[in-house]
């Protein structure tokens, strides 16, 4: 597995370079918006990747509540964290695209607001994981993740149910897209998916290592410190020496 990681990293880097070339050079220029429409090749694949990672988080959270497996819990945390990174890209590239096209950076319509709410929910999830020492934190976070995932279909289908500034979705939206644009979009999505997989892999290894270090530190404080209360419990002479008797 350790050998596979650098190979996958090099392949992903090559794919990302090729994807940028396709987006900036090969893809046809859109007639109304011009070159700024090429933001589409980063904005849409980032959104799809974020949705997919939040879905993985949902599945892992449900599995954790059922089986209480710490590995599944780690997967849920990792997918949420990388998903937040991709969702941040969506929330940053969207306004940069909106400014020259709509004339405004942001509007409080359903699609944009529900995406911001989605991001806030998963940031809250990560904060809960980061700052809660309670043994119940993984279960609470899993429950929050299940409620958070309810916002994903709202984000995607909001365009169908409400009048919004945002254009129709690429898949199932009823609009048409040039086949050459489709091809470039899929190439970019594949590249981003491989990149997301690499980030999840690295983050999962980091999380496993963090848990091992925490366990070792807990064990060390329990057994290794002769001045600690645990030493007094194990050996009453330590307590007697400390009190000077």
């Amino acid at each position: 597995m350790k050998r596979l990681f650098p190979i996958l990293a090099v392949l992903t880097a090559l794919m990302l370079v090729y994807a940028v070339y396709q987006a900036l050079v090969v893809a046809p220029t859109e007639r109304t918006m011009g070159d700024v429409q090429r933001i589409f090749y980063y904005h849409v694949p980032s959104a799809w990747t974020a949705f997919l990672l939040f879905f993985v988080n949902l599945v892992a959270s449900v599995a954790y509540l059922v089986k209480r497996n710490p590995k599944v819990d780690a997967l849920a945390m990792v997918s949420a964290e990388v998903g937040v990174v991709f969702c941040t890209v969506v929330l940053v590239t969207g306004p940069i695209w909106a400014r020259p096209v709509w004339g405004i950076w942001w509007t409080w319509d359903v699609r944009l607001t529900s995406t911001l709410v989605l991001w806030l929910i998963y940031v809250s999830y990560l904060l809960l994981r980061r700052f809660s020492d309670s043994a119940q934190a993984p279960a609470l976070a899993a429950a929050l993740a299940i409620f958070g995932a309810l916002d994903i279909p709202l984000v995607y289908f909001s365009i169908w149910f409400f009048r919004t500034q945002h254009p129709q979705p690429v898949i199932g939206g009823g609009g048409s897209i040039d086949p050459r644009m489709w091809r470039v979009l899929l190439i970019n999505w594949m590249a981003f998916l491989c990149f997301a997989l690499l980030m999840c892999w690295s983050r999962y290894r980091l999380e496993t290592m963090r848990r091992e270090v925490e366990e070792a530190q807990a064990l060390e404080s329990l057994l290794g410190d002769d001045r600690g209360p645990s030493a007094e419990i194990r050996n009453p002479k330590v307590a007697l020496n400390r009190s000077g008797q």
């Binding site: 070159d35 980063y42 980032s46 940053v92 590239t93 940069i96």
Partner: peptide, 15 residues
């Protein structure tokens, strides 16, 4: 519009 395009790509990679 090119400035906005490059800004979006640069922002993505910065993140």
């Amino acid at each position: 519009s090119i400035k906005f395009l490059y800004s979006a790509y640069a922002a993505t990679w910065t993140i």
